[in-house]
């Protein structure tokens, strides 16, 4: 049984179809990269997998550990081991990062029949993970993502992932906007979590991340469909010839390339 099986998934927002039949299978321990032009539906796919109600699933099926994922609430998905690192992490004034993360961790531990961590044990484990990502401990006492720089927000996502130890991590453009040092830190944090039991879907625009997080498969998403899949060399190919080489119109990308 695969960890995740997406079969012919269709999703709409309002009356607009964004995902137009996506099929993808992820086995335990695999890393899949998803690339594709702006607006192709990458974040939509990520959000649908995490359970965002904004998107209506109009067709297809998603099985996670053999179970109907789409029937589960977002919190139940998280408790079952799914983690989404948001492309745009949400600011939550008034809720401290520490309180938030402890509540999240304990909700997940409870589901898995583990004892809840007290403040002391929690802090110890969290400190370790913060060191891994070279994060300032002061961030713990600040409200969730509030006033964080773009890079701090992205690192905070990976930090949360490190604490929550998911089975399936979906990283949505975690590398965008990071300088090379921050990128290495994030990649280091991600790689520390790689293992035979942990799978990842890594959404990115840039081959550069994939130098550090080496994927088993690369898929190209365009206009709501996976138009090409291959090994890690596909990312290099894209870097060389752009989406145009695949016959995909992507003006933004073309302009952006110097």
């Amino acid at each position: 049984m695969s960890l995740l099986e997406i079969k012919d998934l269709h999703a709409t927002v309002g009356d607009r179809e964004i995902l137009k039949g996506i099929s993808l299978t992820v086995d335990a321990g695999e890393v899949h990269a998803i690339m594709g032009p702006n607006g192709s539906g990458k974040s939509t796919l990520a959000q649908v997998l995490a359970g965002r109600e904004l998107y209506a699933v109009t067709g297809g099926q998603v099985l996670y550990q053999g179970q109907d994922l789409l029937a589960m609430s977002p919190e139940d998905r998280a408790r079952a081991g799914i983690f989404l690192a948001f492309q745009y992490p949400v600011e939550i004034p008034g809720v401290s990062n520490m309180y938030f993360l402890k509540a999240a961790l304990n909700a997940i531990r409870k589901q898995q029949g583990m004892e809840e961590l007290d403040a002391f044990d929690f802090l110890n484990m969290v400190r370790e993970k913060m060191t891994l990502l070279d994060m300032d401990q002061a961030l713990l006492n600040r409200p969730v993502n509030t006033g964080f720089s773009g890079g701090e927000k992205k690192r905070n996502e990976i930090f949360q992932m490190a604490v929550l130890e998911p089975k399936l991590a979906i990283l949505d453009e975690t590398d965008s906007g990071l300088d090379i040092d921050a990128l290495k830190l994030v990649a280091h944090g991600v790689n520390a979590l790689r293992g035979p039991e942990r799978s990842m879907i890594v959404v990115t625009h840039y081959q550069r991340l994939l130098n550090y997080i080496v994927p088993d498969y690369v898929h190209v998403l365009a206009e709501g469909r996976i138009v090409k899949s291959g090994g890690k060399e596909l990312a290099l190919e894209l870097e060389e010839s752009g989406y145009a080489g695949l016959g995909i119109a992507d003006e933004e990308e073309a302009v952006g390339k110097v």
């Binding site: 995490a50 919190e75 948001f86 949400v90």
Partner: peptide, 19 residues
């Protein structure tokens, strides 16, 4: 924000009261 909290495993009603 509600979805963000839920996506981390915090139940909907707890997420609402937290916010």
């Amino acid at each position: 924000a509600l979805f963000y909290l839920q996506s981390r495993g915090i139940g909907k009603s707890d997420a609402r009261s937290l916010l």
